[in-house]
Design a protein around this nucleic acid. Sequence first.
DNA 1: GGGCACTCTAAGCGAGCGCTCACCTTCGGA
DNA 2: TCCGAAGGTGAGCGCTCGCTTAGAGTGCCC
Lengths: 208, 208
Amino acid sequence: MSTAEETADGEVQPWDEVTPDAARRLLVAAVEAFAERGYHATTTRDIAGRAGMSPAALYIHYKTKEELLHRISRIGHEKALDVLRTAGESEGGPAERLAEAVRSFVRWHAGQHTVARVVQYELDALGPDARAEIVALRRQNDAAVRGIIEDGVAAGDFDVPDVKGTTIAILSLCIDVARWFNVNGPRTPDEVGALYADLVLRMVGAKG
Amino acid sequence: MSTAEETADGEVQPWDEVTPDAARRLLVAAVEAFAERGYHATTTRDIAGRAGMSPAALYIHYKTKEELLHRISRIGHEKALDVLRTAGESEGGPAERLAEAVRSFVRWHAGQHTVARVVQYELDALGPDARAEIVALRRQNDAAVRGIIEDGVAAGDFDVPDVKGTTIAILSLCIDVARWFNVNGPRTPDEVGALYADLVLRMVGAKG
DNA sequence: GGGCACTCTAAGCGAGCGCTCACCTTCGGA
DNA sequence: TCCGAAGGTGAGCGCTCGCTTAGAGTGCCC
């Protein structure tokens, strides 16, 4: 499922498996444009131009502008879910697993903040069917985090009065990184991940 | 629909001072439309229609569609900042002040989530000047929260290794409530506020 | 060499956009 | 009773949007 290759700085490139080359260039161009201006403010002429092609070329590889957004959303969510699950299934107790999950998930949302922004904030631009598919993927994120917290509570490692509410808050915290993270800012994705892992362990009252 | 009155929980509708009546109706209609569909996907015909007027009437009260967004953003930010500052200046030690600030701020973002969504997510649709004005208001939010945390650290009540980072995280947590909060969901704004105040006190390692 | 599948472009269609304009109605004050 | 300001409308302008169409260039198999 995830043939995600890694770059020098450890970031996962989500588009490796998209072929042919022209289709991938269009997808990358669309991500940049959607992240910068938003879906509705982006024109198909702009996307095609960024990919070095004429406006009509877009419609050889994608049926509509919405299909581009749908593809981006699905791939983006799948990659993020993959990152979260892999980390959550790592060795160690609930505290280590939760910390690793938050660290990875935040690192992804910071490093891939352009993709994450599109994926998180343009959901409403999708039609009902595509939207339902993406919402289902989101629920799997929720379940993955809640599972770790429940494990920690059952083991007596965490002190969490409201598991569902705390799960929402933790995911919300991680996801919103995509909104404010700035590549030219003072923090690297790794540093934000480390900070957030510590904060989340405090939120669940982890022992130690 | 939403007239300028106080709701049951004492929250003030932000548009009381906007006159004349037609201008206020247009503003409220614009908030609803922008929150539902996004700024760029909203047409001036839709806004005017919701306010029960012809498309041309909009331009009697506002020069452009962007001016509507600018007005909404400024008023929304000012109200939110007011809520945050009032709570932060309340009686009690840093822990009580921080808890009250988070509780009020979250309650506002949940209760006024349509306004908050517009204000937080449509910033990029503003021109450079209007945008700079709004960014300045945001920095005041940041300073208000950081002030309380610094007080708590100085008094020995909080344990916060990274004050700036923790401030960003706390504000991010509160603001993102506007994205996921659902009126038909299981939680009231008050309940979310209480949960989040508790979580934030844990994040800053408040004694007790 | 010839036919075919694939990829791309130049040109442009119909629709809907933000916004304007000429004109109409209402109403308080002289 | 008449006037002018304020607030409203119907029609529509100029433009750009998402998307389509006719046809050209290229490489591959026979």
